[in-house]
């Protein structure tokens, strides 16, 4: 079966204004809206489009997280993934641990393509896809804005600092998504109902023989330094004068 594995993560919704806890132990998560990581939604959308074009037969969505992350995995199924795998683990995992978990699932599922977001918008690590590709000893094409598939290769356009770079990689491969790859579809109510009946497996990192131990300790979390509010000017002439006075013109 031609299969695509899509890795998704639950994060604080991108519309939420994140606040740091006063005791510095982290950010406020109580009562905060949680959603699929936007880059992972783009990854899932791309996998679904490939399947809809006949380029794949099955799309499997996989997540690592606490028991109630099942809700976001159901959202992935409602978007159109055929089945879900939930690796249940309380608390965060480091990218290398996530990569080890995904590698075990790859060995089981034998996908020809793994797609995931370039980064999760909580930890902003931008590591998991690259680490997975390294452990799997397969190509990586990160920050993708276009994916063209043949039977044996993928031609991927990447958003890099210099412009748009194109790589050709042999399959199987790992692709991480950038913002402009596609615009994810909205989930419709009947699809939410249908998703409840789709298969969803649960297992633990230990079931896969992966230790979730952490090597990076969080010491403290603080809000960013605020910039001082500046001056308002009333026209272009005053603006130029203000900049000359500051010595920047």
């Amino acid at each position: 079966m031609k299969r695509i594995l899509v890795c998704v993560k639950r994060v604080i919704d991108f519309n939420v204004r994140v606040r740091v806890k006063p005791d510095g132990s982290g950010v406020v998560t109580d009562g905060v809206k949680l959603s699929l990581n936007p880059f992972d939604e783009i990854a899932l959308e791309e996998a679904l489009r490939i399947r809809e074009r006949g380029g794949a037969q099955e799309v499997v969505a996989v997540t690592i997280g606490a028991a109630d992350c099942q809700q976001q995995l159901r959202t992935a199924l409602a978007m159109g993934a055929d089945r879900g795998i939930h690796v249940v683990h309380d608390g965060g995992v480091e990218p290398i641990v996530a990569a080890r978990v995904f590698l075990k699932l790859i060995e089981k599922e034998q996908p020809f393509l793994v797609i995931l977001g370039k980064q999760a918008i909580d930890d902003d690590n931008n590591q998991t896809g690259q680490m997975l590709a390294a452990l799997w000893q397969r190509p990586q094409a990160t920050f993708a804005s276009k994916i063209e598939l043949t039977d044996t290769t993928a031609r991927v356009t990447r958003e890099v600092d210099a412009g748009l770079e194109t790589l050709e990689v042999d399959l199987p491969a790992v692709v991480t998504t950038d913002l402009r790859l596609n615009e994810p579809r909205y989930v419709k109510l009947p699809d939410i109902m249908k998703a409840k009946k789709k298969p969803l497996d649960s297992l633990s990192p230990a079931d896969l023989g992966v230790s979730a131990g952490a090597r990076v300790k969080l010491v403290k979390t603080v809000p960013p330094a605020q910039r001082q509010k500046g001056v308002m000017v009333k026209d272009a002439r005053e603006l130029v004068a203000a900049l000359r006075q500051r010595g920047v013109l």
């Binding site: 590591q127 690259q130 680490m131 920050f143 890099v160 600092d161 090597r215 990076v216």
Partner: peptide, 22 residues
């Protein structure tokens, strides 16, 4: 940069070191 973001995690995984980003 996109160069380092692409490359360094692949290095970290190969030498089994934790990576700190940004």
């Amino acid at each position: 940069t996109t160069f380092g973001k692409d490359l360094m995690p692949r290095v970290a995984a190969l030498i089994d070191a934790p990576q700190l980003s940004d």
